[in-house]
C-alpha cells in the first residue's frame, strides 16, 4: 500500500497548523500608544500634528470630535487612541526614522509608544 497520500495529507495538516502559529513563533511585536493621563492637558496638538489625521478633514479645533479615520482624538479632556492600525508608526515600526509627530508635538511629554510583548 502506498502511504504517500496519507503522509502528504498529515504533514500538510501539520504545516497548516504551523502557518497558523507563525506570528506567535516569530514573536511579532504589538506597538501601542501610551498617553499619560496625569500629564495630558488635552490641548489637541497631537491630533493636529498627526499626518494620518491630517489626511481627513475634521480635525478643526484640534479635538477631532468625530474620530472617523483618525489615529487619536481628544475625549474627556485627554488624548485617546481611536484606530492604532492607521498609525504610521505601528504600520512601519522598523523604518529608519519612525514617525514621531505626536511625540514631538506634545508640550507635556505625555505621549509614549511601547512595544507590548
Amino acid at each position: 500500500m502506498d502511504a504517500t497520500p496519507v503522509a502528504l495529507l498529515l504533514s500538510a495538516f501539520f504545516l497548516l497548523l504551523l502557518l497558523k502559529l507563525l506570528p506567535v513563533l516569530r514573536g511579532e511585536r504589538r506597538i501601542k500608544m501610551v498617553v499619560l493621563e496625569e500629564l495630558c492637558n488635552g490641548c489637541g496638538n497631537c491630533v493636529v500634528a498627526c499626518p494620518v489625521n491630517a489626511l481627513r478633514g475634521g480635525v478643526g479645533g484640534g479635538k477631532g470630535e468625530s474620530g472617523e479615520g483618525m489615529v487619536m482624538r481628544i475625549g474627556e479632556g485627554v488624548a485617546v487612541e481611536v484606530d492604532m492600525n492607521r498609525c504610521e508608526r505601528v504600520r512601519n515600526p522598523d523604518a529608519e526614522k519612525p514617525c514621531r509627530a505626536c511625540i514631538d508635538a506634545c508640550p507635556m511629554d505625555a505621549i509614549n509608544f511601547t512595544c507590548q510583548p
Binding site: 496519507v6 503522509a7 498529515l10 501539520f14
Partner: peptide, 10 residues
C-alpha cells in the same frame, strides 16, 4: 516533527 509525521504512515 514534520519529517517524522511524514514518514509515520509508512
Amino acid at each position: 516533527a514534520i519529517s517524522g509525521i511524514y514518514v509515520l504512515p509508512f
